[in-house]
Write a protein that binds this DNA or RNA. Structure first.
Length: 271
DNA sequence: CAAAGGTCCTGCTCGC
DNA sequence: TGCGAGCAGGACCTTT
């Protein structure tokens, strides 16, 4: 599910329900997700108040007066705010309980993660070497991407999906941004001009912003904190549309594998 | 059997 | 030869 727009929609959804609230306890119902849960997690959290709900890349950062809970939604994770009386379903792995309400992590594929860090979360090993945020960040610009792409043989699609280059862009939004920019997904990152990187930066920002406005993309697992879906799926121009006509030239969209991931594109409009 | 929204880790290759 | 950076592939897990 979750690329930057979905994680940010989740952040905005849960924030008003949990910020400044005191954690009663935490419940863990599975052995591990991508990694084991932090030891004695409930005792680290119980009795402490959530001071802020932030996002860095696709990580949610719930900072308390005792440390920061880091949550990653992996490929299929979602968070819901429900009443404490709501019974847990299959794949409901983790609850953070606040009196009568709780925040519940649901993740069928278990590629997500719940981690704990004392002190500055930006120094956590998983966050320390992340690239720039793509939205509202002057550091993310064409000069930066162009410089970063020198001597890189990989495709532009793998390049912008690499979190060390820029964070938040996964398979859906990489496909959409490259279509919007008219760049073939398999083109080498080092063989794109500065001028075309200007177009690509704008396309990435535009696609992510529009997805945010539509509440993200729901294909199957993603829901907002109240269970509603995101509606950007209806705005997708290439992702999931293999064989259907390009909205510009009407030629059928093609699919290729790039770095193990399906990439849908228009061979006429993207070069 | 193949694929699905992510990303870390391992081991290899390449160039200085 | 040695070293670091870049890169490809595998791994994790469940459902459709």
């Amino acid at each position: 599910m979750p690329e930057l727009p979905e994680v940010e929609i989740t952040r905005r959804g849960i924030e008003p329900h949990i910020v400044n609230k005191k954690i009663s306890s935490a419940v863990i119902r599975t052995n591990k997700l991508r990694w084991p849960f932090p030891p004695a997690l409930s005792s680290k959290l119980s009795g402490h108040k959530i001071l802020s709900v932030a996002r860095r890349a696709k990580y949610l950062l719930l900072t308390t007066d005792n440390g920061t809970l880091i949550i990653h939604l992996g490929m299929s994770g979602s968070l819901r705010i429900v009443n404490t009386s709501t019974p847990a379903q299959a794949h409901d792995h983790f609850d953070l309980i606040f009196g009568k309400k709780l925040m519940r992590l649901h993740d069928p594929r278990k590629f997500g993660a719940v981690l704990w860090v004392k002190g500055d979360p930006a120094k956590h090993s998983l966050l320390a070497s992340l690239g720039p945020e793509p939205l509202n960040n002057p550091q993310f610009n064409a000069d930066y991407l162009y410089a970063c792409a020198r001597n890189r043989r990989i495709s532009i699609k793998e390049f912008i999906m690499n979190a060390k280059v820029v964070v938040g862009i996964g398979n859906i939004y990489a496909s959409e941004a490259l279509f919007a920019a008219g760049i073939h997904p398999a083109r080498s990152a080092s063989r794109i001009s500065l001028q075309r990187y200007e177009v690509l930066v704008s396309a990435i920002q535009s696609v992510l912003s529009q997805a945010l406005q539509h509440g993200g993309t729901t294909l199957r697992d993603f829901t907002r904190e109240d269970g509603r879906p995101g509606y950007f799926r209806h705005e997708l121009k290439v992702y999931g549309r293999t064989g259907q006509p390009c909205i510009h030239c009407r030629r059928p969209l093609r699919a290729i594998k790039i770095g193990q991931r399906t990439s849908t594109y228009c061979s006429h409009c993207q070069r």
